[in-house]
């Protein structure tokens, strides 16, 4: 890699990292505001105008709290758990195409940091690494509730990964490529995959809720049964890492959903806009802004569901995963395959 390319990659990774952290920070604020709105309260409104500095105060509090490492815990693994959790959730962002081509001082800069030809598999690989963060942390705490939470989390994530994989395979049959860049390019304009894969998207959405441990599938950290779930023993910024990784996962999985099913940075009439203004940069910037608008809608959707639908029981969760979603996704895969065979040949 030449020096210029290296600098561009470094800058884009740092930018992506800051944006991800910023969005995760303000997702916590948004969650409390949305919850307040749903429950007819005001929510946090003391720090700054309208409570806008509340996340900074929360972050500061996390850093100032005493850090407790239980005596009987496995100390190395206890620290390793949250580190893996946050690292793996930050890793997926590099693969997502955040926009088209920007032309800066005569250089063409792609807003996708890495374009792998097997982008989707990379997402899955990182996802499967993320399980270890929860499992290791839960086990190393040496606490029965933590262990229960960790075991619930891992079995839930493994179970829902299957139907998520099947819904992705159905999508791959339609798009014919595994590269996220090409998948987005194929959805040019309004030709979004959601119109070809409505049921696949629904399955993917449900699985995304389960994979990110969000309500109604937040049994790993079910307060009413398990105190705090896998992070019962954690305090200070290590707890902050776990909570943060959940919000980052929410952001990243919203971005993956938008990329796969809702056209990524494509928007209707983009060709007309390019034709009228003749500026590629303008189209790219509008596309990126709209991409983030779609992502924010899905983040809001995650919160909306959290404050609307109560939590499942664990056997209901497993029944839905194994007896509901997996057969459904296999049937959908068959239907898609038949459709592709019928219409494309």
């Amino acid at each position: 890699m030449d020096f210029q390319g290296f600098v561009i990659t470094l800058i884009s990774i740092i930018t992506l990292f800051s944006i991800t952290m910023f969005i995760a920070l303000y997702s916590t604020f948004a969650e409390r505001k949305v919850a307040a709105f749903m429950q007819d309260r005001r929510g946090p409104n003391r720090a700054g105008p309208g409570g806008i500095f509340q996340p900074l105060a929360d972050g500061l509090k996390f850093f100032m709290k005493e850090e407790v490492i239980p005596v009987a815990s496995n100390k190395f693994l206890f620290v390793l758990g949250p580190s893996i959790a946050i690292m793996s959730s930050l890793m997926t962002g590099v693969i997502i195409p955040w926009g088209g081509q920007l032309i800066v001082f005569g250089n063409t800069v792609s807003l996708q940091i890495v374009d792998l030809d097997i982008g989707i598999l990379y997402v899955f690989a990182v996802l499967s690494v993320g399980v270890y963060g929860i499992m290791i942390g839960g086990w190393a705490s040496n606490n029965k509730f933590s262990l229960m939470g960790a075991i619930r989390a891992s079995s839930q994530i493994i179970s829902y990964e299957l139907s998520m994989g099947f819904s992705i395979v159905a999508l791959l049959l339609v798009t014919g490529t595994m590269s996220l860049h090409e998948i987005v390019e194929r959805q040019h304009g309004m030709n979004w995959n959601i119109f070809y894969q409505p049921l696949g998207f629904l399955i993917f959405l449900i699985c995304a809720f389960a994979e990110t441990n969000r309500t109604p599938f937040d049994l790993p950290e079910c307060e009413t049964e398990l105190v705090g779930g896998y992070h019962t023993e954690y305090s200070s910024m290590k707890l902050g890492f776990y909570l943060f990784s959940e919000y980052i996962n929410m952001f990243i999985s919203s971005a993956v959903m938008v990329t796969l099913y809702f056209g990524g940075y494509n928007f209707p009439f983009m060709d007309q806009l390019l034709h009228a203004t003749g500026s590629q940069n303008l189209v790219t910037i509008v596309g990126t802004i709209l991409l983030f608008a779609k992502v924010f809608f899905f983040i809001f959707f995650f919160m909306w569901v959290r404050w609307t639908i109560p939590r499942f029981r664990y056997d209901q969760l497993m029944n839905l995963g194994w007896k509901g979603l997996i057969p459904l996704s296999i049937v959908w895969l068959m239907l898609t395959a038949a459709g592709v065979l019928f219409f494309k040949s």
Partner: peptide
């Protein structure tokens, strides 16, 4: 061989070893 490498991570590191760990933890 990015494909084989990724599938190795997904299947062995991601699924099979999680089950191993799962059994050992109990």
């Amino acid at each position: 061989a990015t494909f084989v490498g990724m599938v190795n991570v997904i299947v062995y590191a991601g699924a099979i070893m999680v089950l191993f760990l799962y059994v050992l933890m109990m």
